[in-house]
Write a protein that binds this DNA or RNA. Structure first.
Length: 865
RNA sequence: GCGGACGUGCCGGAGUGGUCAAACGGAAUGGGUUUAGGCCCCAUUGGCUUAGUGCCUGCGCAGGUUCGAACCCUGUCGUCCGCACCA
């Protein structure tokens, strides 16, 4: 049996020794940048799911490389991060030791997958050569007002012991801990002004060739809405509020302010103080989760707001359902919002309505929330909602009482973390000078710290206590580190110039390689990494460091690999598949082929032992075939047609990530090749088509048929459309039908045939179709007349009818008698050995003759003796 | 609640207006080869039909558009995903 592992090791070594995957800038060649999201190296190593991800990218990179692109295909490790820190604490091991061991293990495993990375460009985010530039960018942002420090309500995960960005809170819980609710703390933290680019981030989404789903998720995340800002006067002060439905303003009967509003105290009157405090205590005592299910509750503040349109005084309430950080933390409440109505009914606040539907009547209990026609709205009565909104905005702007505005859900990025294993924030706190940027980068992450006593960096006095770079007085360092999403926001830039000690990357090199042409990764990063990275590129562009607007032109989301039981792969379920184990039995090429053949690579798939065995049969057959192949010099038009067609289609399939379809076509082509006389060119082309999927095997067989050099860097085959002849396919189809008919007849007769007689008659359908091809008439009578064949008076009108309905559908090729005879003669031997009997092919001169043999003309009649 | 995706044979899955759906793989059954087989080869796997590139049914369910729909539209049921008191 073939030793696939030996073959794989042989070629992996050769690839490495000859450095064929190493690339550098080459202005003469077109570049192509293929990238998979770099992994977080965990101690458990990689499983088959990782292998699937990398295989998808590797196939694409190999494909583009053979198409003569200068392909940048690098790998690196997202090495900083909490899991390493936590695991290290648990194992009583320094995070650095843990991470380095994990990376080493990852690299070794990845290398055994036969991935065509340029390993010389490896990037590890935990090395100071890398994170120095994190600090550099941080300070650049700081200088340019893109980084600021602010006290605000922030999300805190008690399990991670750190604050989290908005993007890292899912359903009120920590993204790493599905069971842990995030607490809101009021802390001073570092933010990056991502919102400066809200509009551009939103607008540029349409430029991206990304899955629609991801684009939509980003759109919703940024969450732009148009509306109106209105100043309500409360206690002589202006309180701007945001609404999308200013047209409902004449029905405002109360206001609701968020319980977390920073200026809440100024609204509470002496008389209401007690009641309000009780209420606030009550909401604080319930957890975030319970709050979700909670009814709307509130309490009157004692203050009144003046509606600028009506001059009416309406009460201001505190409500648990108003968000503090969206809009202005206060809303106007009216009879056209379900939540407001619910709230008002509970507390017996009066309600008004001012909008009615255009074409129907509302029923008494209905809360009409759609747009309609205004009434009871002063000068605006009778207008439609849309008209009224514009007029009201003008009305407000003329009186300086408000304006048309935009709102985004998107917020600034909270980047500081109170944890150790990350990039130190290069800022010094000086009592005299305030926030002072560190001049000497990198600020190294000290190795000696104590864990479990708050912020680990604060435990290293040598690190914390410094002299102020400006005034040289005693100062202290920032002890927070950066969110690791900062690292992953620009790693793809570093690949362009990973050894540069003077700059993060040389602009010229970045200009050559960027943007990433094809990015590959999971959908879980839609609203995290993929937004941060887009922000980063735009920010660096505006700092003059880049000339691109977007980092990733095309994005592909691969599906997830589940265990054989249909569940997510996990240790606790014991369904984890490890590439090494699979390689030992089947070889990694077989695994690669199997993984991409199950389904379209963007769909979730399940591991299947039976499935990979099926692919194993194929790879073994391949080897067997090539070991015994006799290369012919003869021309074989039929095979050439099939080969050219396969080249055309497989090229298109790979381009559009239909790897599953491509592998099927490879198998089909192989079936044809193995049955025919084949020349060297066809064999070579087949191996080339195979090589992105099964690179080791392709190299081995390439060598076996007498080639030198690597197939991996050979040229992708080109097809000649003139050589693709559709007739051959019909021939095959015809033979399939003949075989199927013979089988049916044998079954019916119930005996092994000694002689099979085949009467080939002139096909009446052939005649009909031939006549139809010449016809242009749309007159049914005329058509029937012209295509009529005697003996088929019943069928002809039906054909004529459908022809008139759609002449284009008549593209079908029907073989004529002569061709049928020829094909049968050619395949006679094959049929004889297949059915173990003699074959006689008889040309039937007339329909009558065939009928006399108990068969019907129009098809090959089969008789068994 | 809002937004999105999907629903095809025993199973995984192709096909997203036109050469009369099920490619390809898996599985099962029958046969061949074999000392034996878990290898390999062949056949069968919706119904009808005393073979005829045939007929009927059929792509969750019900309607509609079209000469023609698995594919487009509407409704409905089911599964999954994202966001979620966003004013």
């Amino acid at each position: 049996m073939t030793n696939f592992q030996k073959i794989e090791q042989k070629w992996q070594k050769k690839w490495e020794d000859s450095e064929i995957f190493k690339v550098k800038e080459d202005s003469k060649k077109k570049k192509y940048y293929v990238l998979e999201m770099f992994p977080y190296p965990s101690a458990s190593g990689l499983h088959m799911g990782h292998a699937l991800n990398y295989t998808i990218g590797d196939i694409f990179a190999r494909f583009k490389r053979m198409q003569n692109y200068n392909v940048l295909y690098p790998m690196g490790y997202d090495a900083f991060g909490l899991p390493a820190e936590n695991a290290a604490i648990k194992a009583k091991q320094h995070p650095k030791v843990y991470t380095e061991a994990s990376m080493k293990n990852f690299e070794k495993q990845q290398k055994s997958l036969g991935l065509s990375y340029d390993w010389s460009r490896i990037v590890k985010t935990c090395e100071s050569e890398y994170y120095k530039w994190n600090q550099y960018f941080f300070l650049k942002f700081f200088e340019n007002g893109l980084v600021y420090r602010k006290k605000s309500p922030v999300n805190w995960c008690p399990k991670c012991d750190t604050v989290l960005a908005n993007e890292q809170v899912h359903n009120g819980r920590c993204w790493r801990h599905e069971d842990t609710e995030v607490e809101i703390k009021h802390l001073e933290q570092w933010f990056i002004k991502t919102t400066k680019y809200s509009e551009e981030l939103l607008k540029d989404i349409e430029k991206l060739e990304w899955p629609e789903r991801i684009k939509l998720m980003q759109q919703n995340w940024i969450g732009k809405s148009y509306g109106t800002e209105i100043n309500f006067e409360i206690n002589g002060e202006n309180w701007p509020i945001f609404t999308t439905r200013v047209d409902t303003i004449f029905s405002v009967t109360f206001m609701v302010v968020s319980a977390q509003h920073p200026k809440l105290n100024s609204l509470i009157t002496e008389k209401q103080k007690k009641e309000v405090n009780n209420f606030l205590k009550k909401i604080k005592s319930v957890s975030e989760k319970e709050l979700e299910a909670l009814e709307k509750e509130g309490v009157f503040t004692g203050s009144y707001a003046i509606n600028p349109f009506t001059g009416e005084k309406v009460p201001v309430w505190i409500g648990n359902f108003v968000l503090a950080d969206y809009g202005s933390g206060m809303v106007m409440a009216d009879g056209h919002d379900v939540r407001d109505v619910e709230f008002a009914k509970k507390y017996n606040i009066p309600l008004k309505t001012v909008i009615k539907p255009i074409e129907r009547k509302t029923n008494p209990n209905e809360v009409f929330t759609e747009k309609g026609i205004l009434y009871n709205s002063g000068e605006f009565s009778g207008l439609s909602s849309d008209e009224a909104i514009i007029k009201m905005q003008n009305w407000l702007e003329n009186r300086k009482l408000g304006k048309k505005t935009l709102q985004y859900k998107f917020k600034d990025w909270l980047v500081s973390r109170q944890r150790y294993w990350g990039t130190p924030i290069p800022i010094i706190y000086c009592n005299k000078c305030g926030l002072v940027p560190e001049k000497n980068l990198p600020v190294l992450l000290p190795e000696k710290v104590e864990f479990g006593k708050g912020n680990p960096l604060a435990t290293n006095k040598n690190f914390v206590n410094v002299k102020c770079p400006k005034c040289n007085s005693d100062a202290k360092r920032e002890t927070d580190t950066m969110d690791t999403f900062f690292d992953s926001s620009w790693y793809y830039l570093r690949y362009c110039d990973n050894k540069n000690l003077k700059e993060a990357f040389e602009k010229k090199k970045a200009d050559y390689w960027l943007p990433v042409d094809q990015y590959i990764g999971g959908a879980e990063h839609a609203c995290m990494h993929l937004i941060y990275a887009r922000f980063f590129v735009k920010a660096l562009r505006d700092l003059g460091l880049l000339k691109i607007d977007e980092p990733f032109t095309r994005l592909f989301n691969q599906g997830m690999l589940h265990g054989a039981d249909g569940n997510k792969m996990s240790k606790s379920l014991g369904n984890v598949i490890v590439p090494e184990e699979v390689s030992k039995v089947y070889g990694i090429d077989t695994a690669r082929l199997f993984l991409v053949s199950v389904a379209s690579p963007d769909k979730d798939i399940e591991w299947s032992e039976n499935g990979i065995q099926g692919m194993f049969r194929f790879t073994n057959r391949l080897v067997d075939y090539f070991e015994n192949v006799k290369i012919s010099k003869a021309k074989n038009e039929k095979l050439e047609s099939a080969s050219n067609k396969a080249i055309k289609e497989i090229t298109e399939d790979i381009e559009s990530f239909k790897y599953n379809i491509a592998t099927i076509k490879l198998r089909q082509l192989f079936e044809k090749i193995s049955k025919e006389e084949v020349n060297k060119e066809t064999l070579e082309n087949f191996l080339k088509l195979l090589s992105p999927f099964a690179p080791h095997l392709a190299e081995e067989l390439w060598e076996k048929i007498g080639n030198k050099g690597f197939i991996s860097v050979s040229e992708w085959p080109k097809y000649d459309s003139k050589k693709i002849k559709i007739e051959f396919e019909y021939e095959d189809e015809f033979m399939e039908n003949i075989k199927s008919d013979i089988n049916t007849v044998i079954k019916l007769v119930g005996k092994q045939p000694k002689i099979i007689k085949m009467f080939v008659s002139e096909s009446w359908k052939y005649e009909v179709y031939r006549k139809l091809a010449k016809l242009e008439s749309r007159n049914i009578k005329e058509v029937i007349e012209k295509i009529m064949v005697k003996g088929y008076e019943k069928e002809i009108p039906k054909i004529a009818q459908s022809f008139i309905k759609n002449p284009n559908a008549f593209m079908k090729i029907v073989l004529d008698q002569k061709t049928e005879m020829k094909i049968l003669e050619e395949n006679k031997k094959e049929l004889e050995s297949m059915f173990n009997s003699k074959i006689e092919i008889i040309k039937a001169e007339s329909s009558k003759e065939v009928k006399a043999k108990q068969a019907v003309p129009g098809k090959v009649a089969i008789l068994i003796e």
